[in-house]
Design a binder for these strands. Structure first.
Length: 936
RNA sequence: GGGCGGAUAGCUCAGUUGGGAGAGCACAGCCCUUACAAGGCUGGGGUCACAGGUUCAAGCCCUGUUCCGCCUACCA
């Protein structure tokens, strides 16, 4: 037996044990036997990421489940990996390049992507190492990355199949555009935040000079793209004006006043300007009325030529200022009011989103969503906690087509090609429609060219390669039909042309994430992993990506695997700081998990997270509590140290022939807590499981059991000692096993120090319910009552802990007498008594303090030391409590309806309680009377 | 606008078939009692947001109200 340090110090041993597990390949799925499978795919953190509290909680919970299941004999696979995180990663690398004054367009697409891979090789696995510090038992041999070759093949396969089925299509409509990231975003990626803005009331004069209408807008610059003014058809104010023309200020255009019932008469002036090219609502109105659509803002967030020469090229906000100035000069602004409204922001860079009319790729989700809804309805997939299903349903039932194309470079490039030499249905050559915009204007034959259609550029003397290489933007109208293939193509299948133009867009990162549960297992190959581990058992994640990720995995899993990607979705809370604020770098309130691990050890950190796990949707992280759980481990560590000093009496970890009350009791309690822990884990109630362990280890095993067996260990016979030491070891070993999923490091450490096992605790069986000894708990309650009674008097009368006192216990039953008598030395030790007299026929000793507990009266003679006044006060307090209880219970028992309707066991319980309180009250009254009459 | 969640001890929060209000921390008092002062023992502290209802019985179920948080949405 190695000796243990006085205090538990995690840092020295954690890394060693992790290495031990890895070297022995203990994280790989166990083969052999008829093992059922248990699998989890990790929510892949971004390669750009470093471990934050959310990851730590997420990974800890998954690790607890995996370690627990592994010990239960399952063949466990926990698939780790990272996500290429298109926009985020591209932004990071672009910023890094910017430091060297490099722009991605100057080095070109291929070179840029090469740089990203370099960056990934250098920094992309940081989070993996951090997960290891946490103790995560992922099978690292299964490590995946969403841009791996295999996963890319899965992406291609899915894309092409959906395209060929007509479930992926291109369309020209308004989308959320980030002018900073230069890409389209899905609806989900637009974060709405309320902003303080202004509502401008602008006069729109009639063309015939007979007056004006006033429209209200928060975005005056968009007026340059107005193509109508709408009013409600039943709005009397505008009754005669529908159909009239307006001379749109600052432009030379005439636009009509139209009637549309979507207009809210109450808002503003009841007249609304319609800008179909820059507002989602207006786009719909425009379609209903066949209005033209004028794009006045471009992909850079700058004004186009459609905005007019005066505004062309201005940034949208510069333009807003100028438009306002111009309007003011013409006295066309009626008024302006402060106005708070919701504005979409890019979820990556927080730039205000501009709705733009562009061609994008979409997934038609309706049919996919139907299946995904059914799977949750019929409980093929269930959410824990169940309440999240409501959110899921609400979103899925109202789901809109998913915009999957992004105008960035880092990601899965869309496998679509366009042939400039084929013709549209209307007989137009594609090459006349495809428009290229260059990054740098090119000089060709003394002419400067910055844009043009493909064929124009060819005619100007550029080669195909030059055009492709220099294109910053390629606009490919809807009429140009793409060719989509699993493998890259270089020849047009229709006309044989060899100058194909590949779609420059990449897929939304979430597209590949949606395939994660089966792409990581080898799909589209039919692999053993797929057979063994799909569907996965449970997905553990936070609620903020239910729509982004969970819903889409369900849709894709059902579509391509004909089976759900997972059975359960466990949704955990999001960690905030101690004030409830979201942790963010800019707020400076980020708590770094690695710092916590450093300070308190991974085990204490993990255990805290498990205890926090059940709290609603927010967890306020508190370092104080973490400190408390480190104390817990130290407490347990010291118990181990204590036990180790008796190793000499250890014979066997098999329990046989247990006789003594403490041993019977602790085994019984261990059984109960084992069930509690298993039940808790079964139902994802990590806090119940962790709290069960905490309470048992500290307050039952340490506080009562160890204290109670001490006298025997100090002075007992060898056979007594052996029984108890065996039992101590037995319980201790079970506690190690129970705690292992929560605290893998310290349990492994102690396992090797104590259990003399050469194999890892990871390979041992998780405890299941054991034997319980009848009566052990009720017998023990006599001991606890006696000790607590004595301690209570001591504490309240301020008797020095060092003073050993004499105590008399008058029992009410032979059983109580027997139990107390046979455990006298333990009681004496725990309550610090020199001697205890026990019996049913004892009488009160003069000058005693008294307390009355269940089954006993306890007297402590104080020979003149007793302060009568304070003793009377103390008994008065005790009496108040009892009277209070008697009042409550008595009321129930005098209620006929209660007696008639409540279950008999409830009534019985109340009756017993009542009798006990009555008896205690009588005894207290007697003693009070005595004290008051004779003064002692 | 729609939806969801929360309101329990000074603080952070548990509390699942409705049947004696709990934990951790903090606080007060006493103690270095041979595993542990990162400890032990004792104690104080609650109209379970408010108002109704159902029930023999409500922190828990139902209705309404207030306050806080979140998600979602095309109100210019």
């Amino acid at each position: 037996m190695n000796t243990l340090d006085k205090t538990y110090s995690p840092s020295s041993m954690e890394d060693n044990w992790y290495k031990f597990w890895e070297e022995n390949r203990l994280f790989a799925p166990q083969e052999g036997g008829e093992r059922p499978s248990f699998s989890i795919v990790i929510p892949p953190p971004n390669v750009t990421g470093s471990l934050h509290m959310g990851h730590a909680l997420n990974a800890t919970l998954q690790d607890i489940l995996c370690r627990w299941k592994r010990m239960q004999g399952y063949r466990v696979l926990w698939v780790p990996g990272t996500d290429h995180a298109g926009i985020a990663t591209q932004n990071v690398v672009e910023r890094a390049l910017a430091k060297d004054k490099i722009d991605r367009h100057s080095i070109g697409r291929e070179a840029f992507i090469e740089r990203v891979w370099q960056w990934k090789a250098e920094y992309g696995n940081r989070i993996i190492f951090q997960l290891k510090k946490l103790g995560a038992s992922c099978d690292w041999e299964h490590l995946r990355f969403t841009m791996d070759e295999g996963l890319s093949r899965a992406v291609r396969e899915v894309f092409v199949r959906l395209f060929k089925e007509g479930l992926i299509y291109r369309d020209n409509r308004l989308i959320n555009w980030c002018p900073r990231c230069h890409t389209a975003l899905s609806d989900l990626e637009a974060e709405h935040e309320s902003l303080d803005g202004k509502l401008y009331y602008i006069k729109y004069p009639f063309e015939d000079g007979t007056g004006y209408v006033i429209v209200a807008t928060t975005r005056p610059e968009t007026m340059l793209g107005d193509t109508a003014v709408a009013v409600h058809p039943e709005d009397d104010r505008y009754a005669g004006q529908i159909g009239k023309l307006i001379a749109l200020p600052l432009t030379n255009r005439k636009i009509p006043i139209i009637a549309d019932s979507s207009v809210d008469m109450e808002f503003g002036t009841g007249a609304v300007k319609i800008t179909p090219a820059h507002d989602f609502n207006d786009e719909l109105t425009g379609r209903r009325h066949n209005l033209p659509s004028l794009s006045v803002i471009n992909e850079e967030g700058k004004m186009t030529h459609e905005a007019g020469e005066r505004y062309r090229g201005l940034d949208r906000y510069e333009c807003r200022k100028l438009v306002l100035k111009d309007l003011r000069e013409k006295d066309l602004i009626e008024t302006e009011k402060r106005y708070v409204h919701n504005v979409g922001h890019c979820y990556r860079c927080k730039t205000i989103i501009e709705p733009l009319q562009t061609i994008q790729w979409y997934v038609k989700v309706e049919s996919l969503a139907d299946g995904a809804i059914k799977a949750v309805q019929d409980r093929t997939i269930s959410f824990v906690p169940e309440q999240w299903e409501n959110n899921y349903f609400a979103w899925m039932r109202d789901i809109r087509d998913w915009c999957i194309s992004r105008q960035i470079w880092w990601g899965h490039q869309i496998p679509a090609w366009y042939c400039p030499d084929c013709k549209t249905e209307d007989g137009i050559l594609h090459g006349d429609l495809i428009e290229h915009i260059f990054f740098n204007p090119l000089r060709v034959k003394s002419k400067t060219i910055s844009s043009g259609t493909y064929l124009q550029l060819i005619k100007a003397g550029l080669t195909h390669e030059e055009i492709i290489k220099n294109s910053k933007l390629i606009r490919i109208p809807k009429a140009v039909k793409p060719l989509c293939e699993r493998e890259d193509i270089s020849v047009c299948a229709l006309c044989g042309s060899e100058r194909l133009i590949r779609d420059p867009d990449v897929l939304d990162t979430w597209f590949s994430s949606a395939l994660w549960p089966f792409s990581t297992l080898g799909w589209p190959e039919q692999t053993e992993d797929l057979k063994n581990f799909y569907p996965t058992s449970v997905l553990v994640t936070a609620f903020d990506i239910i729509f982004f990720w969970v819903a889409r995995m369900i849709m894709m899993g059902l579509k391509f695997m004909d089976a759900p990607p997972f059975r359960h979705v466990y949704i955990h809370a999001i960690i905030r700081d101690s004030k409830g604020q979201k942790m963010s770098k800019s707020m400076g309130n980020v708590i770094d998990p690695l710092v916590m691990i450093d300070k308190y050890g991974a085990d204490a950190f993990r255990f805290s997270l498990a205890v926090f796990a059940a709290q609603g949707r927010d967890i306020r992280f508190s370092e104080e509590r973490l400190e408390g759980y480190r104390h817990f481990i130290n407490k347990f560590w010291n118990a181990a140290k204590f036990i180790s000093t008796y190793s000499g009496y250890y014979r066997s970890s098999k329990l046989e022939d247990i006789k003594s009350l403490p041993n019977r009791w602790i085994v019984t309690r261990l059984s109960a807590v084992t069930e509690e822990v298993n039940r808790g884990l079964e139902s994802y109630r990590f806090n119940d499981a962790a709290n069960g362990i905490y309470h048992f280890v500290w307050h039952e095993f340490c506080d009562w059991y160890i204290e109670m067996v001490k006298p025997e260990l100090y002075t007992g016979t060898d056979s007594e000692k052996t029984e108890t030491v065996n039992c101590l070891y037995f319980i201790f070993e079970k506690i190690l096993l129970l705690m292992h999923p929560f605290m893998p490091f310290v349990t492994e450490e102690l396992w090797h120090k104590f259990c003399k096992k050469d194999k890892s605790i990871m390979l041992s069986s998780y405890p299941t319910s054991l034997m319980r000894y009848m009566n052990a708990e009720s017998e023990m309650s006599n001991i606890i009552n006696a000790v607590n009674g004595i301690r209570s008097i001591r504490g309240e009368l301020n008797i020095q802990p060092s003073a050993e006192i004499f105590v008399a216990i008058k029992t009410l039953s032979d059983e109580a007498t027997k139990t107390i008598t046979s455990n006298l030395s333990s009681i004496k030790k725990m309550a610090r008594c020199s001697d205890i007299m026990v019996g049913k026929d004892l009488t009160r000793i003069k000058g005693s303090a008294i307390t009355v507990r269940e089954q006993m009266e306890i007297y402590i003679p104080l020979e003149g030391l007793l302060d009568v006044k304070s003793e009377i006060a103390r008994l008065g307090k005790e009496m108040d409590k009892i009277n209070n209880e008697i009042g409550i219970v008595g009321k129930k028992l005098s209620n006929e309806d209660f007696l008639n309707n409540a279950p008999s066991e409830v009534v019985e319980k109340e009756k017993r309680k009542y009798e006990d309180y009555r008896h205690r009250k009588d005894k207290l009254l007697e003693n009070l009377a005595l004290l008051q009459s004779i003064g002692s």
